[in-house]
């Protein structure tokens, strides 16, 4: 599995350079505007782009059907992709946290904010990865767009329906439940992906 993970990291190296240049740009904007929400958004997009790009390269080279002839299993291939997403999410978290903390010097606030963003990003990846394993990156992209856009449509819909914001008490409970919910989604996602992958024909 280490080999598979290395393959993605090395293969994405070039892409990563471009991402880094954009990241620096966003950091600049964030500091100028004293608001790091831009950068945080970018980090979410970044982690999703990482997995999309990794899948796209694999698809193009028809890597999977070769990889499966090596002493690795379909399970390894699936897990290596989750490892990739996880590692990049952690990286993105550290970057956003460092930026937020250096700007606000509020440790607890920065931590909560960045953790929330990272958890949201992980949840998003958990939904997208099984889709990629099932449909491949080409068709998966359309589904991904739908998934990414769904929350904004939903909030638009809710505000149009005069749906009032939940009470602060509920929100603070949500704060405790959310991490566990995301972990649960992630674990379910891994099992679902493995199931999907095992049924796949190449």
């Amino acid at each position: 599995m280490i080999g598979l993970f290395l393959k993605d990291v090395i293969n994405l190296k070039q892409q990563a350079k471009i991402f880094l240049v954009i990241a620096v740009l966003f950091i600049g904007i964030s500091i100028l505007q004293q608001d790091n929400s831009f950068f945080a958004m970018y980090m979410v997009v970044f982690t999703i782009l990482v997995s999309t790009t990794a899948f796209a390269y694999d698809d193009k080279a028809k890597w999977d059907r070769y990889a499966l002839t090596m002493p690795v299993s379909g399970r390894d291939i699936v897990l290596s992709k989750y490892l990739l997403v996880f590692v990049f999410t952690v990286l993105a978290f550290l970057l956003t946290f460092l930026l937020a903390f250096s700007m606000t010097h509020a440790f607890h606030e920065s931590l909560t904010e960045c953790l929330t963003i990272s958890l949201a990003s992980l949840a998003l990846s958990s939904i997208i990865l099984p889709v990629f394993f099932k449909f491949g990156v080409e068709k998966g992209r359309i589904v991904m767009m739908a998934i990414v856009l769904a929350p904004s449509f939903l909030s638009l819909l809710l505000s149009n329906l005069n749906f009032s914001a939940p009470a602060p008490a509920i929100l603070s409970k949500l704060e405790i439940v959310a991490p566990f919910a995301v972990i649960l989604i992630l674990v379910l996602s891994v099992f679902l992906s493995i199931r999907i992958y095992k049924k796949k024909e190449f």
């Binding site: 290395l6 293969n11 390269y57 193009k60 059907r65 070769y66 090596m70």
Partner: peptide, 23 residues
């Protein structure tokens, strides 16, 4: 296979490093 199966951005050294960790 009838087509090369290795992703585009790899060099020989990369292929060696990756496969060393697979086989």
């Amino acid at each position: 296979m009838d087509e090369s199966s290795f992703p585009d951005n790899l060099s020989l050294k990369n292929v060696d490093l990756i496969l060393k960790n697979c086989y």
